[in-house]
Amino acid sequence: MRSFLNRVSHWVGPDIAGPGAAFIAVMIVFSIGSPQFLTGATFGSVAFQLPELGLLTLAMLLPILTGGLNLAITFTANIAGLTVAWYLQKNGGVDAGPGAFLIGSLLAIGVGALSGLLMGLVIAYTKAHPILVSLSMMIFLRGLGEFLTRGGDVSGFPAFLQPIGHGSILGVPIPLLILIACVLLWHVLLTRTKLGFGTYMIGSNIEAARYSGINTRKVLVLVYMLSGAMCAIAGIIMLARFNSVRVGHGESYLLITVLACFLGGVNPFGGFGRVIPVFLALVVLQLLSSGLNLMGANQHLATAVWGILLIAVMLLRWASSHFKIFKRKKG
Protein backbone atom coordinates (compact mmCIF):
# COMPACT_ATOMS: atom_id res chain seq x y z
CA MET A 1 0.00 0.00 0.00
CA ARG A 2 2.76 2.37 0.98
CA SER A 3 4.69 1.67 -2.12
CA PHE A 4 1.53 2.23 -4.12
CA LEU A 5 1.10 5.62 -2.47
CA ASN A 6 4.74 6.39 -3.10
CA ARG A 7 4.25 5.51 -6.69
CA VAL A 8 1.23 7.76 -6.97
CA SER A 9 3.05 10.67 -5.37
CA HIS A 10 5.97 9.99 -7.66
CA TRP A 11 3.62 10.21 -10.61
CA VAL A 12 2.07 13.36 -9.35
CA GLY A 13 5.27 15.15 -8.40
CA PRO A 14 5.72 18.83 -7.61
CA ASP A 15 5.86 19.97 -11.23
CA ILE A 16 2.23 19.04 -11.68
CA ALA A 17 1.16 21.86 -9.35
CA GLY A 18 1.10 24.51 -12.10
CA PRO A 19 -1.00 22.69 -14.68
CA GLY A 20 -3.01 21.03 -11.88
CA ALA A 21 -4.02 24.38 -10.42
CA ALA A 22 -4.80 25.68 -13.88
CA PHE A 23 -6.93 22.60 -14.55
CA ILE A 24 -8.98 23.13 -11.39
CA ALA A 25 -9.32 26.86 -12.07
CA VAL A 26 -10.50 26.23 -15.65
CA MET A 27 -13.02 23.62 -14.54
CA ILE A 28 -14.49 25.89 -11.86
CA VAL A 29 -14.61 29.05 -13.95
CA PHE A 30 -16.30 27.43 -16.93
CA SER A 31 -18.68 25.30 -14.88
CA ILE A 32 -19.97 28.51 -13.34
CA GLY A 33 -19.76 30.51 -16.54
CA SER A 34 -21.50 28.04 -18.83
CA PRO A 35 -24.04 25.38 -17.89
CA GLN A 36 -23.16 23.29 -20.95
CA PHE A 37 -19.53 23.07 -20.02
CA LEU A 38 -19.73 20.01 -17.79
CA THR A 39 -21.32 17.84 -20.45
CA GLY A 40 -20.17 15.06 -22.67
CA ALA A 41 -20.14 17.36 -25.67
CA THR A 42 -17.31 19.48 -24.27
CA PHE A 43 -15.19 16.52 -23.47
CA GLY A 44 -16.04 14.95 -26.80
CA SER A 45 -14.74 17.96 -28.67
CA VAL A 46 -11.67 18.13 -26.46
CA ALA A 47 -11.02 14.47 -27.06
CA PHE A 48 -11.05 14.94 -30.81
CA GLN A 49 -9.01 18.15 -30.87
CA LEU A 50 -6.40 17.16 -28.35
CA PRO A 51 -4.49 14.51 -30.34
CA GLU A 52 -2.97 16.65 -33.11
CA LEU A 53 -1.64 19.27 -30.74
CA GLY A 54 -0.74 16.55 -28.25
CA LEU A 55 1.32 14.48 -30.66
CA LEU A 56 3.15 17.54 -31.91
CA THR A 57 3.84 18.59 -28.32
CA LEU A 58 5.36 15.18 -27.63
CA ALA A 59 7.55 15.74 -30.66
CA MET A 60 8.61 19.12 -29.25
CA LEU A 61 9.17 17.79 -25.72
CA LEU A 62 12.20 15.59 -26.37
CA PRO A 63 14.35 18.28 -28.04
CA ILE A 64 13.42 20.80 -25.34
CA LEU A 65 14.54 18.34 -22.67
CA THR A 66 17.98 18.18 -24.30
CA GLY A 67 18.13 21.98 -24.16
CA GLY A 68 17.18 22.42 -27.81
CA LEU A 69 14.04 23.02 -29.85
CA ASN A 70 12.55 21.53 -32.99
CA LEU A 71 10.88 24.27 -34.97
CA ALA A 72 10.35 21.96 -37.94
CA ILE A 73 7.66 19.83 -36.28
CA THR A 74 4.60 21.12 -38.10
CA PHE A 75 6.09 20.94 -41.55
CA THR A 76 7.63 17.56 -40.83
CA ALA A 77 4.09 16.44 -40.07
CA ASN A 78 2.88 17.92 -43.35
CA ILE A 79 5.60 16.26 -45.37
CA ALA A 80 4.86 12.95 -43.67
CA GLY A 81 1.18 13.42 -44.52
CA LEU A 82 2.18 14.08 -48.13
CA THR A 83 4.19 10.88 -48.15
CA VAL A 84 1.13 8.86 -47.17
CA ALA A 85 -1.01 10.72 -49.67
CA TRP A 86 1.52 10.12 -52.43
CA TYR A 87 1.72 6.40 -51.69
CA LEU A 88 -2.07 6.05 -51.51
CA GLN A 89 -2.53 7.84 -54.80
CA LYS A 90 0.11 5.76 -56.41
CA ASN A 91 -1.82 2.68 -55.32
CA GLY A 92 -5.26 3.58 -56.53
CA GLY A 93 -6.23 6.73 -54.64
CA VAL A 94 -9.75 6.25 -53.27
CA ASP A 95 -9.52 2.54 -53.99
CA ALA A 96 -6.20 1.96 -52.23
CA GLY A 97 -6.20 -0.86 -49.73
CA PRO A 98 -5.25 -0.91 -46.06
CA GLY A 99 -1.94 -2.48 -47.00
CA ALA A 100 -1.02 0.58 -49.03
CA PHE A 101 -1.97 2.80 -46.12
CA LEU A 102 0.17 0.76 -43.75
CA ILE A 103 3.20 0.91 -46.02
CA GLY A 104 2.55 4.58 -46.68
CA SER A 105 2.45 5.26 -42.95
CA LEU A 106 5.69 3.41 -42.38
CA LEU A 107 7.25 5.42 -45.19
CA ALA A 108 5.91 8.60 -43.62
CA ILE A 109 7.42 7.73 -40.25
CA GLY A 110 10.65 7.01 -42.08
CA VAL A 111 10.52 10.41 -43.76
CA GLY A 112 9.85 12.12 -40.43
CA ALA A 113 12.72 10.27 -38.82
CA LEU A 114 14.95 11.18 -41.75
CA SER A 115 14.34 14.90 -41.27
CA GLY A 116 15.11 14.39 -37.58
CA LEU A 117 18.19 12.38 -38.41
CA LEU A 118 19.54 15.18 -40.55
CA MET A 119 18.94 17.81 -37.87
CA GLY A 120 20.30 15.55 -35.17
CA LEU A 121 23.51 14.92 -37.11
CA VAL A 122 24.09 18.61 -37.74
CA ILE A 123 23.35 19.51 -34.12
CA ALA A 124 25.40 16.68 -32.64
CA TYR A 125 28.44 17.00 -34.87
CA THR A 126 28.70 20.74 -35.53
CA LYS A 127 27.26 22.01 -32.25
CA ALA A 128 25.14 24.47 -34.24
CA HIS A 129 22.29 25.90 -32.21
CA PRO A 130 19.19 23.66 -32.51
CA ILE A 131 16.94 26.68 -32.97
CA LEU A 132 18.83 27.60 -36.13
CA VAL A 133 19.16 24.10 -37.48
CA SER A 134 15.50 23.28 -37.01
CA LEU A 135 14.50 26.73 -38.26
CA SER A 136 16.31 26.22 -41.53
CA MET A 137 14.90 22.70 -41.74
CA MET A 138 11.46 24.21 -41.22
CA ILE A 139 11.98 26.72 -44.03
CA PHE A 140 13.29 23.94 -46.26
CA LEU A 141 10.43 21.55 -45.56
CA ARG A 142 7.84 24.28 -45.99
CA GLY A 143 9.39 25.12 -49.35
CA LEU A 144 9.59 21.48 -50.32
CA GLY A 145 5.95 20.92 -49.39
CA GLU A 146 4.75 23.99 -51.27
CA PHE A 147 6.86 22.99 -54.24
CA LEU A 148 5.36 19.50 -54.31
CA THR A 149 1.75 20.59 -53.81
CA ARG A 150 1.96 23.96 -55.57
CA GLY A 151 0.30 25.38 -52.49
CA GLY A 152 -2.89 23.34 -52.94
CA ASP A 153 -4.68 20.54 -51.13
CA VAL A 154 -4.15 16.88 -51.71
CA SER A 155 -7.27 14.84 -51.09
CA GLY A 156 -9.15 11.80 -52.26
CA PHE A 157 -8.35 9.05 -49.81
CA PRO A 158 -9.97 5.66 -49.25
CA ALA A 159 -13.03 5.60 -47.00
CA PHE A 160 -11.52 3.25 -44.43
CA LEU A 161 -9.34 6.13 -43.21
CA GLN A 162 -12.40 7.91 -41.84
CA PRO A 163 -12.53 6.00 -38.52
CA ILE A 164 -8.90 6.79 -37.77
CA GLY A 165 -9.76 10.45 -37.69
CA HIS A 166 -13.33 10.32 -36.47
CA GLY A 167 -14.13 6.88 -35.08
CA SER A 168 -14.37 5.68 -31.52
CA ILE A 169 -13.73 2.47 -29.66
CA LEU A 170 -15.93 2.04 -26.58
CA GLY A 171 -16.72 5.73 -26.73
CA VAL A 172 -13.09 6.80 -26.79
CA PRO A 173 -12.02 8.52 -29.99
CA ILE A 174 -9.37 6.59 -31.89
CA PRO A 175 -7.03 9.62 -32.27
CA LEU A 176 -7.16 10.03 -28.48
CA LEU A 177 -6.26 6.38 -28.00
CA ILE A 178 -3.28 6.86 -30.28
CA LEU A 179 -2.24 9.94 -28.33
CA ILE A 180 -2.55 8.13 -25.00
CA ALA A 181 -0.48 5.26 -26.34
CA CYS A 182 2.18 7.71 -27.46
CA VAL A 183 2.11 9.55 -24.12
CA LEU A 184 2.68 6.27 -22.30
CA LEU A 185 5.42 5.34 -24.74
CA TRP A 186 7.17 8.67 -24.13
CA HIS A 187 6.72 8.32 -20.38
CA VAL A 188 8.39 4.91 -20.39
CA LEU A 189 11.06 6.14 -22.78
CA LEU A 190 11.97 9.05 -20.55
CA THR A 191 11.76 7.41 -17.16
CA ARG A 192 12.86 3.85 -17.83
CA THR A 193 15.39 3.79 -20.66
CA LYS A 194 19.01 4.75 -21.07
CA LEU A 195 18.02 7.06 -23.91
CA GLY A 196 15.62 8.95 -21.65
CA PHE A 197 18.18 9.13 -18.88
CA GLY A 198 20.73 10.49 -21.31
CA THR A 199 18.22 13.02 -22.63
CA TYR A 200 17.86 14.63 -19.21
CA MET A 201 21.58 14.56 -18.46
CA ILE A 202 22.45 16.13 -21.82
CA GLY A 203 19.88 18.84 -21.18
CA SER A 204 21.63 19.86 -17.99
CA ASN A 205 25.25 19.58 -19.06
CA ILE A 206 26.24 17.85 -22.27
CA GLU A 207 29.99 17.86 -21.63
CA ALA A 208 29.67 16.41 -18.14
CA ALA A 209 27.35 13.75 -19.57
CA ARG A 210 29.98 12.87 -22.17
CA TYR A 211 32.68 12.63 -19.51
CA SER A 212 30.41 10.24 -17.62
CA GLY A 213 30.30 7.87 -20.56
CA ILE A 214 27.01 8.86 -22.17
CA ASN A 215 27.09 8.69 -25.95
CA THR A 216 25.87 12.23 -26.34
CA ARG A 217 25.90 12.29 -30.13
CA LYS A 218 23.87 9.13 -30.36
CA VAL A 219 21.35 10.43 -27.84
CA LEU A 220 20.96 13.74 -29.69
CA VAL A 221 20.53 12.07 -33.06
CA LEU A 222 17.99 9.61 -31.67
CA VAL A 223 16.08 12.37 -29.88
CA TYR A 224 15.62 14.33 -33.10
CA MET A 225 14.79 11.17 -35.04
CA LEU A 226 12.12 10.21 -32.53
CA SER A 227 10.83 13.76 -32.61
CA GLY A 228 10.54 13.54 -36.39
CA ALA A 229 8.84 10.16 -36.21
CA MET A 230 6.31 11.52 -33.73
CA CYS A 231 5.62 14.42 -36.10
CA ALA A 232 4.87 11.84 -38.78
CA ILE A 233 2.27 10.18 -36.56
CA ALA A 234 0.69 13.59 -36.01
CA GLY A 235 0.76 14.15 -39.76
CA ILE A 236 -1.04 10.84 -40.42
CA ILE A 237 -3.73 11.68 -37.85
CA MET A 238 -4.19 15.09 -39.44
CA LEU A 239 -4.57 13.48 -42.85
CA ALA A 240 -7.26 11.18 -41.53
CA ARG A 241 -9.10 13.95 -39.69
CA PHE A 242 -9.22 16.49 -42.51
CA ASN A 243 -9.33 13.89 -45.25
CA SER A 244 -6.76 16.07 -47.01
CA VAL A 245 -3.20 17.26 -46.73
CA ARG A 246 -2.24 20.87 -47.11
CA VAL A 247 1.20 22.29 -46.39
CA GLY A 248 0.67 24.79 -43.60
CA HIS A 249 -1.97 22.69 -41.84
CA GLY A 250 -1.32 22.98 -38.13
CA GLU A 251 1.31 25.68 -38.62
CA SER A 252 -0.20 27.72 -35.80
CA TYR A 253 0.41 24.80 -33.43
CA LEU A 254 4.18 25.32 -33.57
CA LEU A 255 4.60 27.83 -30.79
CA ILE A 256 1.61 26.43 -28.88
CA THR A 257 3.52 23.17 -28.43
CA VAL A 258 6.39 25.11 -26.85
CA LEU A 259 3.88 26.93 -24.67
CA ALA A 260 2.32 23.63 -23.59
CA CYS A 261 5.72 22.24 -22.60
CA PHE A 262 6.56 25.29 -20.49
CA LEU A 263 3.10 25.26 -18.95
CA GLY A 264 3.72 21.61 -18.08
CA GLY A 265 6.73 22.59 -16.00
CA VAL A 266 9.44 21.72 -18.52
CA ASN A 267 12.62 23.68 -17.89
CA PRO A 268 13.23 26.00 -20.88
CA PHE A 269 16.98 25.31 -20.65
CA GLY A 270 16.44 21.54 -20.68
CA GLY A 271 17.20 18.79 -18.22
CA PHE A 272 13.88 18.75 -16.39
CA GLY A 273 10.30 18.03 -17.34
CA ARG A 274 7.92 15.09 -17.37
CA VAL A 275 5.37 13.80 -19.82
CA ILE A 276 2.37 13.57 -17.48
CA PRO A 277 2.27 17.25 -16.43
CA VAL A 278 2.71 18.24 -20.07
CA PHE A 279 -0.25 16.04 -20.98
CA LEU A 280 -2.30 17.71 -18.24
CA ALA A 281 -1.23 21.12 -19.55
CA LEU A 282 -2.50 20.10 -23.00
CA VAL A 283 -5.85 19.10 -21.55
CA VAL A 284 -6.09 22.47 -19.80
CA LEU A 285 -5.32 24.35 -23.02
CA GLN A 286 -7.90 22.38 -24.94
CA LEU A 287 -10.55 22.75 -22.21
CA LEU A 288 -9.91 26.47 -22.20
CA SER A 289 -10.49 26.79 -25.90
CA SER A 290 -13.60 24.58 -25.82
CA GLY A 291 -14.97 26.49 -22.85
CA LEU A 292 -14.40 29.82 -24.54
CA ASN A 293 -16.05 28.44 -27.67
CA LEU A 294 -19.12 27.56 -25.64
CA MET A 295 -19.22 31.10 -24.32
CA GLY A 296 -19.23 32.44 -27.83
CA ALA A 297 -15.59 33.37 -28.25
CA ASN A 298 -13.44 32.08 -31.08
CA GLN A 299 -10.15 30.25 -31.29
CA HIS A 300 -8.19 33.51 -31.47
CA LEU A 301 -9.34 34.63 -28.05
CA ALA A 302 -8.40 31.20 -26.77
CA THR A 303 -4.91 31.67 -28.22
CA ALA A 304 -4.57 34.94 -26.35
CA VAL A 305 -5.83 33.33 -23.14
CA TRP A 306 -3.28 30.53 -23.58
CA GLY A 307 -0.55 33.13 -23.63
CA ILE A 308 -1.98 34.84 -20.57
CA LEU A 309 -2.20 31.48 -18.80
CA LEU A 310 1.49 30.80 -19.48
CA ILE A 311 2.44 34.17 -18.04
CA ALA A 312 0.15 33.61 -15.05
CA VAL A 313 1.81 30.28 -14.29
CA MET A 314 5.26 31.84 -14.63
CA LEU A 315 4.25 34.71 -12.36
CA LEU A 316 2.94 32.28 -9.76
CA ARG A 317 6.21 30.37 -9.92
CA TRP A 318 8.13 33.62 -9.49
CA ALA A 319 5.91 34.71 -6.59
CA SER A 320 6.17 31.38 -4.82
CA SER A 321 9.96 31.38 -5.00
CA HIS A 322 9.99 34.91 -3.61
CA PHE A 323 7.59 33.94 -0.88
CA LYS A 324 9.74 30.98 0.09
CA ILE A 325 12.85 33.08 0.55
CA PHE A 326 10.85 35.61 2.46
CA LYS A 327 9.51 32.94 4.81
CA ARG A 328 12.91 31.42 5.41
CA LYS A 329 14.43 34.77 6.22
CA LYS A 330 11.84 35.35 8.91
CA GLY A 331 12.22 31.89 10.43
Binding site: V258, L259, H300, L301, T303, A304, V305, W306, L310
Partner: peptide, 10 residues
Protein backbone atom coordinates in the same frame (compact mmCIF):
# COMPACT_ATOMS: atom_id res chain seq x y z
CA UNK B 1 6.14 33.15 -26.93
CA UNK B 2 3.44 34.07 -24.44
CA UNK B 3 3.16 37.65 -25.68
CA UNK B 4 3.27 36.37 -29.27
CA UNK B 5 0.10 34.41 -28.58
CA UNK B 6 -1.50 37.22 -26.59
CA UNK B 7 -0.79 39.94 -29.16
CA UNK B 8 -1.84 37.82 -32.12
CA UNK B 9 -4.84 36.22 -30.43
CA UNK B 10 -6.23 39.55 -29.23
Amino acid sequence: IATFNIYFGL
